[in-house]
Amino acid sequence: MSYGVSDAWVRFGSQAALRGVSVDVPTGQVTAVVGGDGAGKTTLLRSLVGRVGLDQGSVAVPARERIGYLPATAGSWLDMSVQENIDFVGGAYGLAGQALAQRSDPLLERADLAGVRDRLSGQLSGGMRRKLGFCLAMLPDPELLVLDEPSTGVDPVSRVDLWRLISEAAANGSAVLMSTTYLDEAERCASLLVLHDGRTLLSGTPHEVVGSLPGTIVSTATLSRPDFGWRHGRELREWFPEGRQPTGGVAITPGLEDVVIASSLKLALDGEEQP
């Protein structure tokens, strides 16, 4: 079973936010959407949960009451307590009393939030608040779980907690689609989609995406062509698309980050040549 969108176009006025994007979201797996701000990640996710209509293309999703959604900016009500958030969102899904407790108690327990039920969401740390948002999205026992940047701004310790929760949801049979700006997270997803300016820049399994870049990437102290170079930790990296032997530097086995950056550079350079 697989959900997703096919050849999705979304326009806001004269701006096209999505230009023919397709993504498959299979059950039992985590699929990642990667891209910077303005790439179209949020529009793609919102089109899956029915908050943005497509101008063209098709959407395959389960019944609305079996979709869980964590928005990028909120996810819970700051002036309500953890328990009030659970009760409120549970109510929206027709859950209350024993049925709601049976669903929410194990979620709060695993998210390490069972001890802070009375605390206002606005008084939780950033990481705890994202975990609460995750629990709320999990309340409908979703067949499709859509998470918009669950880990942005979350510290490394809470990021690991979130990852455990997300991978468990997939292992229990949900189809999970999440957006992220952290490429190490995308690298451990079953498949990923890199968006740039509303278009699909790269897609496939992490292995396929990393293998799709032509040429050679070198680690170097000086860049021979700054337009093809970038900083990586303490070193500089430079891409030679034609694979010709670089004069300086050491050829490396590229990671996902190298491939995404090199592909973005290529797109920027192509754009300059063909305005």
Binding site: G35, G36, D37, A39, E149, T152, G153, T181, L183, W230, R231, H232, E257, V260, I261, S264, L265
Partner: peptide, 12 residues
């Protein structure tokens, strides 16, 4: 935080 990899490299 929340910036794509190329922009992150450029900010650094």
């Amino acid at each position: 935080s929340g910036v794509d990899p190329l922009s992150r490299a450029r900010l650094w």
